[in-house]
């Protein structure tokens, strides 16, 4: 951290420093308002009645707090033809995200372990090819994937979505674990080999116990990405298997009936809660995942 407040001709700085400090805090505060405003508006709108929304102001606190919109959003509002609220879609997302995160993380761990510690000829090429795969725009695989899921009998199903998320998650999970395991001295593996430990034994008893931080980072990264995904969800699901992001979009952009803004906002918050919760609980690891995904190394 750089400290610019401690310059050394103290008497002169007092007044101008104070003004600068004040300016700094008001700027920071203004930006905080900018980032918080949408969340504030979402929460207050979701707690108002439709009547109050029509007559009141966007930024006003609710005069009368009501949780009706939340109940409607969770279990009554209509997405397309069905009117069961977000609840079934929320569970679809859970059923899709949990196995996809688990499988992709596990594969990434083993792959990263091989690439970092069991170097063989061509390992770098394989790693580069997997890395490039992380950066393709997914539009380029949508059409063949739709056909392949049909051939595999997975079209429009949750296992199909799990499959897709695992496939396109491996690149990043491998990258995360590879970059982590590269920092562990290879002497450790060599010594274990001399002692007669095999490939899996070394992974299981030496590397896995050291991996907690990177597992947390990877799980959070995958969870956020898969939970928030919309493109795969909207392309490869059907009426009963849509994830919560797709259902939310259907609710908000449905053109039939009275527009219930409070229900829209409650539904948006419900869809956002799991990832927000992860962020609040484990923000440090969340940031590490973001930076690991962009700055390699």
């Amino acid at each position: 951290m750089t400290d610019f407040t401690q310059s050394y001709d103290a008497p002169r700085r007092n007044y101008s420093q104070l003004v600068l400090r004040w300016l700094l805090f008001s700027l920071l505060g203004l930006f905080a308002l900018f980032y918080l405003m949408p969340l504030f508006v979402m929460v207050t709108t979701s707690l108002k009645s439709l009547e109050e929304i029509r007559t009141g102001s966007l930024v006003a606190l609710p005069r009368e707090v009501t949780f009706d919109a939340w109940r409607t959003a969770w279990s009554e509002t209509c997405t397309g033809v069905k009117c069961e609220g977000l609840k079934p879609y929320f569970w679809n997302s859970v059923l899709m995200t949990v196995p996809a995160v688990f499988i992709a993380t596990l594969l990434g761990a083993v792959n990263g372990y091989v690439i970092a510690q069991w170097r063989f000829k061509g390992a770098n090429l394989i790693f580069s090819l997997m890395l490039f795969g992380c950066f393709i725009p997914f539009q380029v695989v949508l059409l063949p994937m739709a056909r392949s899921l049909g051939i595999l009998g997975l079209a429009g199903s949750i296992p199909g979505l799990i499959f897709v998320h695992v496939i396109y998650g491996i690149g990043f999970t491998t990258l995360f674990f590879r970059n982590y395991y590269v920092t562990i001295p290879s002497e450790l593996t060599k010594a274990a080999k001399v002692d007669g430990a095999g490939f899996f034994r070394i992974f299981w008893s030496i590397f896995l116990p050291l991996s907690l931080p990177i597992v947390v980072v990877t799980v959070i990264w995958q969870f956020t990405n898969i939970w928030n995904d919309f493109l795969f969800g909207v392309s490869f699901s059907q009426a009963g298997t849509q994830p919560v992001t797709v259902a939310l979009n259907n609710i908000v952009n449905s053109t039939t009936g009275v527009k219930e803004y409070n229900v829209d906002m409650a539904a948006a918050i419900i869809a956002a809660l799991p990832t927000l919760l992860v962020y609040v609980v484990a923000g440090k690891y969340f940031i590490r995942g973001l930076t690991a995904g962009s700055v390699k190394g």
């Binding site: 949408p38 969340l39 979009n249």
Partner: peptide, 27 residues
Amino acid sequence: TIYLYPMALSMIVTGTAWKWIMNPGLG
């Protein structure tokens, strides 16, 4: 924490929120 939390949201959620905020009739 405040500056970074939007990154945890789905773009669908972001879109929904801003659509409402920028709604000319009520926003």
